[in-house]
């Protein structure tokens, strides 16, 4: 991986275990600041666990994680999670309207989100203002995913973790969200780590990619490596995905 970039996040020998089960093993590597890095790999490879470690929702069993060169454990968890935003795959919502959900990050800080700001965030994810007062139970899977992305943007985090955020979207919506993420990355220099099962998306959008299997990082480099992997296991995985 190109070393001229300062790492936004650095993993050093990180392991994560639940009981006897090893979810992540000896993960070492960096996510360069201001770039989009995609995480690809089969289900159960440990990708979501890796994202949750970055946001401090869980801590490694062993090894160290650094956020902008500071040990993650030295950062207050609340400050860390506002600084490193995450959009979860299930796009969980709290009871209420789209506005209640969009303003949640502000509410948690004892502040409020103006309707104009809320409309602007909705616009960013391609939803029109009429959605603002809609109850979240009435949203489709794709609309929930968009609201979830918009809500993550409210904290204006400088690192964004995205867990399969386009998996529930149609082809047109996927394109719009891809453009949005690229735009955020370019405009605000936000570091993005994006889990995707869509290898074409990883090649098109990501600057870099990590290929993960069985809790290990098996190959890293520029996203184009997915076009010609050096390792057989990655080659097999890529072929399986593209078939």
């Amino acid at each position: 991986m190109n070393t001229i970039y300062q790492p936004a996040i650095h993993f050093h020998n990180v392991c994560f275990e639940v009981g006897e089960q090893r979810i992540l093993q000896q993960v070492t590597g960096s996510f360069p600041t201001g770039n989009i890095t995609t995480l690809v790999g089969p289900s159960g490879a440990g990708k979501t666990t890796l994202l949750k470690l970055c946001n401090g929702l869980i801590s490694p069993t062993s090894g160290e994680i650094f956020i902008h060169n500071k040990p993650i454990n030295s950062i207050n968890p609340v400050a860390l999670r506002r600084h490193v935003g995450i959009a979860l795959q299930s796009a969980p919502m709290i009871k209420g309207t789209v506005y209640t959900n969009l303003s949640l990050p502000k509410t948690l800080q004892g502040m409020s989100l103006s309707r104009e700001e809320a409309i602007s965030f909705l616009g960013d994810v391609g939803l029109d203002p009429s959605f603002l007062e809609q109850n979240v139970t009435e949203l489709s899977g794709g609309q929930r995913q968009r609201v979830s992305i918009a809500r993550t943007l409210v904290n204006r985090s400088d690192i964004l973790l995205l867990d399969e955020i386009t998996s529930a979207l149609d082809r047109t919506s996927v394109k719009e969200v891809e453009e949005l993420i690229v735009n955020i990355n370019q405009k605000y220099n936000v570091t993005i780590i994006w889990i995707t099962h869509n290898l074409e998306q990883a090649i098109k959008i990501g600057h870099y990619t990590w290929v993960m299997m069985n809790g290990r990082v098996v190959e890293t480099g520029k996203s184009t490596l997915l076009n010609h992997p050096t390792k057989d296991v990655v080659q097999q995985f890529v072929e399986g995905c593209l078939e």
Partner: peptide
């Protein structure tokens, strides 16, 4: 569980 995790992930106590 998801709701609790969501609020924590957004920087809630």
């Amino acid at each position: 569980r998801d709701e609790v995790e969501l609020i924590l992930s957004l920087g809630g106590t």
